[in-house]
């Protein structure tokens, strides 16, 4: 039976401010407004690789306002089979609890799913909560911070990375994997596929379609609230000026703090 694969993707403000002009080594603040969340591009690429090896169908699912449509077309252009946009005014302001809830409801509505691919985190909120949250709501197994996966007869074999090292974990499907940023090189859409994607269009669902009441989501049903913004804290540091000519003064400080190894 063909694998049913879902990639959950968020369209985020462009964080690629760090585009560097390689000749002059200056930062070029890109002016594009939105992008596919970088880790989600890696998630899609991994799903495409799984599909290429084991067969199956890829659905890209995003809970974003309709401005996301061209980006979802891009995903289909890269090789996903279809794209679903879960779009409903009621989800505005959702934190990661209702977001995971709504996405899980949409995945259930798709039907039986074998593997859900998420990014390790979004570049705008960067919590990394939604992948694990979706796993919880789907009662699926989870492998987070994954760089590669294989599929073997009802099991996902995933390579996970964490602070102490790298492990290979085997979990049965249905499974959620969250994919590390930069863990692969996402392919680009081809002109042919992108034309087809635009003609095919994006499926748009609202909450009613996925069977979720509006009062389950949104700002008012989010446990966390952003109370206020405060300036980035600055520790009181004295910023004592030193010149290259009296660098010895700095080395004195190093010595006082026992920072110089192998001294006399």
């Amino acid at each position: 039976m063909a694998l049913e694969l879902v990639v959950i993707t968020k369209i985020v403000p462009d964080g690629s401010e760090v585009f560097i002009d390689p000749v002059n080594l200056t930062l070029n603040r890109s002016l594009a407004t939105n992008v596919i969340n970088p880790a989600d591009e890696n998630a899609l690429e991994l799903a495409l690789q799984v599909k290429a090896r084991y067969g199956g169908r890829i659905t890209v699912l995003s809970m974003t306002p309709p401005f996301a449509i061209p980006y979802l077309e891009e995903c289909v252009g890269r090789g996903a089979d279809r794209a679903i946009l879960l779009s409903d005014k009621a989800v505005a302001g959702s934190d990661t609890y209702p977001t995971s809830l709504a996405i899980a409801a949409a995945i259930k509505h798709i039907g039986k799913v074998d593997i859900v691919f998420a990014g390790e985190k979004t570049s705008d909120s960067s919590t990394g909560h939604v992948g694990p949250g979706v796993a919880e709501f789907l009662d699926a197994e989870l492998a987070s911070y994954v760089s590669s996966v294989e599929y073997d007869d009802g099991y996902v074999i995933a390579t996970r990375e964490f602070e102490e090292g790298t492990e290979v974990v085997r979990i049965p499907t249905p499974a959620v994997v969250t994919v590390l940023t930069n863990s692969n090189n996402p392919r680009k859409a081809s002109l042919r596929r992108k034309i087809d994607a635009i003609r095919q269009g994006v499926i748009v669902w609202d909450l009613k379609e996925v069977g979720l009441p509006p009062d389950a989501v949104g700002l008012r049903n989010s446990p966390t609230i952003v109370k206020r913004m405060i300036p980035f804290p600055r520790r009181d540091r004295k910023g004592e000026k030193i010149t290259t000519d009296n660098i010895a003064k700095l080395v004195d400080v190093f010595e006082q703090n026992k920072l110089i190894k192998g001294g006399e």
């Binding site: 061209p70 680009k188 859409a189 081809s190 002109l191 992108k194 034309i195 635009i198």
Partner: peptide, 9 residues
């Protein structure tokens, strides 16, 4: 017009 961006002819 059909607009396709992100693709180099």
């Amino acid at each position: 017009a059909m607009l396709v961006s992100g693709v180099t002819v």
